[in-house]
Simulated assay, not measured.
Amino acid sequence: MQTKTTSHRHALAAALLLAAGLAAPAAQGQTPPAQATQAPQPESRTPERPAEVLPNGQALPRPAPRVPRGQPLPTPAKPDIAVTIPAPPDLSAFPPPAMAELPPRVDAKPPQGEMPAQFTGVSQLSLPFAPNAEAPAQDAKALLDGIAARLAARPAERLELRAYASAFPEKETAARRLALLRARAVREQLIARGIDRERLVVFARDVGTPPGAVAPANADRVDLVFRP
């Protein structure tokens, strides 16, 4: 009986010792060897791609890193370049010339001939055209000669060529085209008489005629208007 009691005591003492040994590391904030955490493993990285080299030995620049989808692209840095604006030159040592020393201003060319008497004081003339005709009639030669003589005697004047053609509602475009051809024909004849092209201004218009009506007698014409 005493032997059994002693063995029970020994078993209980061994159990207490084992429990005390396990509790001591926990009380000191240590983790039992079986439950110890493993050391953090280093992050795995993709091996960098070797730089490409050209046949001449020059290395190509590496591509820019990819930006994840949904994130804004990085803003490139602006180069810090100092811009210096030079000061204007000092022209105080060079005074402007006096107005009396400047040459006289020439506004127009000198007259090249005498103006016909019948064109003195006239500001507008009219050159009639035959229906559907693009060029002026032969009897308009004397009128064009007198106009060219006046423009030569007054180099500062300009001449407006306002051409008209009779037009019906279904042929308005054709009428404006005919009027333009008439103005160009008169201009070319004046240029052939020595008048500068820049002094001749062309206008093309049509004279509208209602359906069933007769076109006016002066619908086909070119008005010649003198402008200073």
Score class of each variant (00 low, 15 high):
Thr5Ile: 08
Ala34Cys: 11
Ala100Trp: 00
Thr3Ser: 08
Gln2Trp: 04
Asp80Ala: 13
Gln58Cys: 02
Pro169Thr: 04
Ser166Trp: 08
Gln138Asp: 07
Val53Met: 13
Leu224Phe: 01
Phe203Asp: 15
Arg176Tyr: 04
Gly57His: 13
Met115Ile: 11
Ala82Tyr: 10
Ala165Lys: 07
Lys4Asp: 09
Asn132Cys: 01
Leu178Ile: 01
Thr209Gly: 01
Ile195Pro: 03
Arg187Thr: 13
Ala140Thr: 05
Pro110Val: 06
Gly212Ala: 03
Pro136Leu: 05
His10Arg: 13
Glu170Pro: 07
Arg221Ala: 12
Ala137Asp: 15
Thr120Pro: 00
Asp80Arg: 14
Val53Ala: 04
Leu127Thr: 02
Gly194Arg: 04
Pro169Lys: 10
Asp220Trp: 07
Ser126Asp: 07
Val222Thr: 02
Ile81His: 03
Ala183Val: 09
Val106His: 14
Pro32Asn: 10
Val122Met: 00
Ala167Tyr: 07
Ala77His: 06
Leu22Asn: 02
Pro47Asn: 07
Val106Trp: 05
Leu91Glu: 02
Val225Phe: 01
Leu200Glu: 02
Ala156Met: 04
Thr84Ile: 15
Leu127Tyr: 04
Glu157Ser: 12
Lys4Tyr: 08
Thr46Tyr: 01
Ala135Pro: 02
Pro65Arg: 05
Ala137Val: 14
Ala153Pro: 04
Lys141Thr: 15
Ala133Pro: 03
Pro136Cys: 10
Thr46Glu: 03
Ile191His: 00
Ala117Gln: 10
Leu18Phe: 15
Ala87Met: 02
Arg177Gly: 03
Asp196Asn: 14
Ala137Trp: 05
Thr5His: 10
Ala215Gly: 05
Pro47Ala: 14
Ala165Asn: 08
Phe168Val: 06
Gln38Met: 10
Pro136Ser: 10
Ala215Lys: 01
Glu43Pro: 12
Pro72Arg: 09
Leu178Gln: 01
Glu172Asn: 09
Ala59Gln: 08
Ser44Tyr: 04
Pro89Arg: 09
Thr84Pro: 00
Phe119Ile: 07
Ser166His: 05
Ala152Cys: 09
His10Ile: 14
Thr37Ser: 10
Ala100His: 05
Pro116Asp: 02
Pro61Tyr: 15
Thr5Gln: 10
Ile191Thr: 06
Val122Asp: 00
Pro95Thr: 04
